[in-house]
């Protein structure tokens, strides 16, 4: 099934619709928020949903709906940042390991093996401890840990192509490596990388939410999905329903990315 056909699937359409909304909120979330996400009103603290505050208010009387909208951009951009870093550090070395000889292959495989042993969140916390508590630092760290995923996927996709007849024919005709990669390999590898990127973005969203939940990367009072979830959890006895909203938002976005990845995977969901 082609990628174009796959996106016509109901699950893919639904996922794309969700992601379109998330993308819109990431771009315009702060401007469409009905209230200033930082505006405090302690007299209205921990109020339930109402017409004015659809998701209620937090412990400082801030509008939770507005905070979630305003936090979308930070959360999504951070997730894309880490996936971008992973792509940059994973795809090209993955291809390089196939065409630049055994020494390069051996070194890259060992390096990837080493990086794969590192746990995501702990590594990100350590990096922010060393480089400073910023979301970019944390997401670069997460991106570095995504790189082995892209490396291996790219390498696996390209491995069969190195011995393909048309590639060998191109080599016999004197085509350069760059030309072979560009015209004969890249097009075959991209769909697999795209699927992986969609899945990785879902994972990155969870990683961003986890880190901001722990107070790493984004400093309060700046809103993020994970940050809103963390603050709501502190007042479970007053508003046991409140953490469900940011948690559901994270869950839906991640599920949409996974559903899309499933749909566009070669031979994927039918």
């Amino acid at each position: 099934m082609s990628t174009l056909t796959a996106v016509r699937l109901p699950s893919a359409r639904l996922a794309l619709s969700v992601l379109a909304v998330v993308t819109f909120l990431a771009v315009a979330g702060g401007t469409v928020a009905p209230h200033d996400p930082l505006l405090q009103d302690p007299d209205l603290a921990l109020r339930g949903p109402s017409l004015i505050h659809p998701f209620g208010t937090d412990y400082l009387g801030r509008d939770v709906f507005s905070r979630l909208l305003a936090g979308t951009g930070t959360t999504v951009v951070a997730a894309l940042e880490s996936v971008g870093v992973g792509l940059a550090l994973g795809v090209l070395p993955g291809l390089a390991s196939l065409w630049l000889g055994r020494t390069v292959e051996w070194v890259l495989l060992r390096a990837v093996d080493a990086v794969m042993t590192l746990p995501f969140i702990v590594f990100a916390i350590a990096v922010t401890g060393i480089l400073g508590n910023g979301l970019s630092q944390a997401m670069v760290a997460i991106g570095v840990l995504f790189a082995p995923l892209f490396f291996r996927v790219t390498r696996a996709a390209g491995l069969s192509l190195t011995r393909a007849h048309y590639v060998e024919a191109a080599e016999l005709f004197g085509a350069s490596r760059w030309r072979i990669l560009r015209t004969h390999v890249w097009g075959k590898v991209v769909p697999t990388v795209a699927v992986t990127a969609a899945q990785a973005t879902g994972g990155a969203l969870l990683a961003v939410s986890s880190l901001t939940f722990l107070g790493i990367g984004v400093q309060p009072p700046a809103p993020t999905w994970g940050g809103v979830l963390a603050s709501e959890l502190g007042f479970l006895s007053q508003q046991p329903w409140a953490p469900v909203i940011p948690a559901a938002l994270i869950m839906v976005a991640v599920a949409a990315l996974n559903a899309l990845a499933d749909a566009i995977r070669p031979g994927g969901a039918a």
Binding site: Q40, L60, G215, Q219, P220, P221, S231, G234
Partner: peptide, 22 residues
């Protein structure tokens, strides 16, 4: 710990002519 009093303090100081960061 940034949550709570420091956030509120930041808001109060900013309203009184300070430019506070946490």
């Amino acid at each position: 710990k940034a949550e709570g009093v420091p956030e509120q303090l930041q808001s109060q100081l900013n309203a009184a002519g300070f430019k506070a960061t946490i």
